[in-house]
Amino acid sequence: MACFLVPAGEAIVTTVLTKAFKSKEKAEMDPTSEEVHEAVSAKLPFSKKLSWLNNMLWGGSALLAFEHVWHGEVVAWFPFLTAMENHDEAMAMLHEMSTVGVSMAVLVTAAWGVMVLASDVIMKKQELEDTAQLQEIKTGDSE
């Protein structure tokens, strides 16, 4: 009925958060300090990770909105949702939004969480490998 509105609402929030994080990261990165610049560029910025969630939420909501247009549940005239035309259907729509819609948003966010966790583990593993390699080179030089 209108379950896609819940992930779309979350997408608005995450888009605003992404913009805020991006400007914060830009402000934190001082181009004159090489040390800081290296540290920042070695880590994947959080705004980049949030943009994955944005793409999933916006893309999914757009495609689901199309499905609702296909089924005649979303129309081009006010109130845009056919379920809003009578009280019973409006209640059913709200119930669907609070169950299916919320579950959709939670599932997509959980999948994103797994992606972020996996990327963090990969980055950490890479960092450890790099440190070990550097240590090997250093010990080789001292010998």
Binding site: N55, M56, L63
Partner: peptide, 21 residues
């Protein structure tokens, strides 16, 4: 292509949820 991937995966997850219900 990453954008297209995430868009399709996002929609797939949402429809999967719908299918479960």
């Amino acid at each position: 292509l990453g954008f297209l991937c995430l868009m399709y995966w996002g929609a797939s997850l949402m429809w999967m949820c719908d299918a479960i219900f």
